[in-house]
Design a protein around this nucleic acid. Structure first.
Length: 650
RNA sequence: GCUGGCGUAGCUCAACCGGUAGAGCACCUGACUUGUAAUCAGGAGGUCGCGGGUUCGAGUCCCACCGCCAGCUCCA
């Protein structure tokens, strides 16, 4: 019997017989504790099952339940288990695919009817019975012919289709994974047995399309999640509840920030409080833009289709635009009188603006900032809260510059973006998206474009991820994904390089050489859209905005009606200092009013009674202070100074 | 747009098998004049999303439409 050398991550080496299963090796040569916690192994960096054998000298790493990829693996295991459960309970249901996803997994089934709540509960119970049975996962290698025969025999048409596709791509050895009687075509890896998947929770079901294409057959998707133990599941469910409490749609109602009406789906009505947040963010961005070399312009909302033909939107984006009829053309019998459209983006307007005068190299970079209202006719099913709307405004800007100015402009932009995200406590990562398959422009252009963005990025000392093929069809881009206070990710800021638009709009500038040159355009945004950014901030702050953003900064409460007149002068003095203040002089007890202010998450509540009137002091209650009851009495003037300081733009 | 679920007072929700709509909060009025998270009493408020249909009778059953929600698709 030959012996192989196994090198562990700490550098230590162990000998074992060739052909030893990894799981056995871990238990016998390292320790039963580790064997129990092991889910997967990595051989020379590649994840494999613990059932694989050690056949040559190997660098071995054990992945335990603590590693994030172990959770991913058992969720993939869970997908198999759920599919098994479904086929046990509902024979005749065909399986398709079932990957693990961010917080769990899904599995798509072909079945005539959707799963009911009742059926989902049955499936969850059955899945957990399969876990309790602790069936080992077995990996088998088969030839394409064997695999096709197996699934064809079971009538699994989708599996056969998947296998044929993979074989067509050149695969010759396929792998099957089974537990108990149930078998799936799958690349793996999987955990050692169903028992290692501690607990499965079915979350929801919905429709999905075969291969994500809406022309294909509708499948029934079951979403679920899995954890090593109930404790992990409970913690996750609790966090989910917390996220629900922060849902901006819920807080929008509770804090009275905005409304929607069926007569204008996807377009918000902003209350005075919501409007305050909106205009503060608008003013903040305007101040930053104007202080950083941008100019602000306003342009029309409605345009003749000629503009959209020039920009290319009429061909590529028409479905998303709100078209407007020309009544004169209609009366004259024009078969398609939709000669106008509301703008879905600002760029074409900016390009027209650029062309209003002869531009010189001395004018570049020209940075045009606009916060105009945009309309996009989003699919009805895509709408949701403020994050997906039909009417919105972007903190938009287009930078017209020479190629050699791109790196500097990217740097200026990221500096600004960093300031804004820091101001609200959002952390972020940059993602560099390069040429997609469907694109315009030749390779030389893309080479230059990508190189200049890369140079800019590298010069920033900012860590970034690559997203090959994810660029816009007209140019590469850098996207900025932020994480909010409960760890959720949002794609927010972006800067995109565009060589195509200057061509289409025939934009030029006169260079130092006196000749015409083509500028490049950078599209960029930091908030993305005000609507979505506000939604994210509401959830990020759980509705408790910092003083500078809070729609109401100070609530005034009186101990007795006797001091209401004094309270009104306090309100006036605060308002005169620019403080956003509310005073409830209605019936009711002070305690109730303090409670109301607290529920409204107003940063400061000041209480006024006879004592305060006499001394011109205020008793200040700070929202969210470690001890929320914490109060401090301070001279009124000092309080005003404090609030005014905190209300300044960061 | 597709699949499924849902739509009752401003908000959150109730109404057995089809028998003619109710609560809490909010609102209004009055009393109370209070020291840091809910004072008491009274009042008003609904064409049960909209339109058809079945039925002696529809919030409840059926159809169509609108909207919302979860996904799919798409994206700021």
């Amino acid at each position: 019997m030959t012996s192989v050398t196994v090198t562990l991550p700490d550098g230590s080496q162990k000998q074992t017989a060739s052909g030893t299963r990894i799981g056995d090796f871990v238990r016998d040569s390292i320790g039963p504790g580790l064997a129990k916690a092991a889910v997967l192994a990595k051989i020379d960096g590649t994840s494999v099952d613990l059932s694989r054998t050690l056949d040559t000298d190997t660098r071995l790493e054990i992945v335990t339940t603590k590693a994030p990829e172990a959770l991913e693996t058992i969720r993939h295991d869970a997908a198999h288990i759920v599919a098994d459960a479904v086929q046990r309970l509902f024979p005749g249901t065909q399986v398709t695919i079932g990957p693990s996803i961010e917080n769990g997994f899904y599995y798509d089934f072909d079945r005539g009817q959707p799963f009911s709540e009742d059926e989902l509960a049955q499936i969850e119970a059955e899945a957990n019975r399969i876990i309790a049975a602790d069936l080992p996962f077995k990996r088998t290698e088969v030839s394409p012919a064997e695999a096709i025969a197996l699934f064809d025999g079971k009538g699994e048409k989708f599996k056969v289709e998947i296998i044929q596709d993979i074989v067509a791509k050149g695969a010759t050895v396929l792998t099957l994974y089974s537990h108990g009687e149930w078998v799936d075509f799958c690349e793996g890896p999987h955990g050692p047995s169903t028992g290692r998947v501690g607990v499965i929770k079915i979350l929801s079901s919905s429709a999905a399309y075969w291969r994500g294409d809406h022309r294909n057959k509708t499948l029934q998707r079951i979403y679920g999640t899995a954890f090593f133990d109930q404790k992990g599941l409970d913690a996750w469910l609790k966090q989910r509840e917390e996220a629900e409490k922060r849902d901006h749609r819920r807080l929008g109602k509770e804090l009275d920030l905005f409304h929607f009406h069926p007569y204008s789906p996807g377009a918000a009505f902003w209350t005075p409080k919501g409007t305050a947040i909106y205009t503060i963010l608008s003013a903040y961005m305007r101040k930053l833009a104007l202080g950083n070399g941008y100019v602000e312009i306003k342009t029309p909302l409605l345009y003749n289709k000629g503009l959209w033909e020039t920009s290319g939107h009429w061909g590529k984006y028409k479905e998303n635009m709100f078209l407007v009829e020309d009544s004169a053309a209609k009366a004259a019998g024009d078969p398609d009188p939709h000669h106008y459209s509301l703008k879905p983006m600002n760029c074409p307007s900016h390009h027209l603006y650029y062309g209003f005068r002869k531009q010189s190299y001395r004018d570049l970079p020209l940075r045009l900032h606009t916060q105009d209202v945009l309309h996009r006719n989003e699919a009805a099913g895509a709408l949701g809260g403020l994050t997906r709307v039909r009417q919105f405004a972007q903190d938009d800007a287009h930078i017209y510059c020479r190629e050699d100015q791109i790196a500097d402009e990217v740097k200026r932009f990221t500096t600004l973006l960093d300031k804004v995200y820091n101001a609200v406590g959002l952390t972020y990562v940059a993602k560099f998206a390069t040429r997609p398959e469907k694109r315009i422009g030749d390779d030389a252009m893309w080479d230059r474009a990508e190189a200049s963005l890369k140079t800019a990025l590298d010069g920033l000392g900012l860590a970034y991820e690559l997203k090959p093929g994810d660029g816009a069809f007209y140019g590469p881009k850098i996207d900025f994904d932020v994480s909010d206070s409960i760890g959720r990710k949002w794609q927010l800021g972006t800067i995109q390089l565009d060589y195509a638009a200057p061509e289409r709009f025939d934009l030029s500038y006169i260079g130092e050489d006196g000749k015409e040159h083509r500028p490049v355009v950078l599209h960029r945004a930091i908030y993305g859209s005000f609507e979505r950014f506000i939604a994210i901030l509401i959830e990020h702050f759980a509705g408790a905005f910092p003083v500078w953003l809070a729609p109401i900064q100070v609530a005034v409460v009186t101990v007795t009606d006797r001091v209401n007149d004094h309270a009104r002068t306090v309100v006036d003095r605060l308002a005169a200092a620019g403080v956003r203040v509310s005073f409830d002089d209605g019936n009711g007890m002070m305690k109730a009013k303090v409670r109301d202010a607290s529920l409204q998450k107003i940063p400061y509540t000041i209480v006024l009674g006879d004592k305060e009137v006499a001394s011109d002091e205020v008793s200040v209650r700070t929202f969210g202070a470690a001890d929320q009851q914490k109060m401090a009495t301070m001279p009124f003037a000092a309080f005003v100074e404090k609030v005014v300081a905190e209300a300044r733009f960061p």
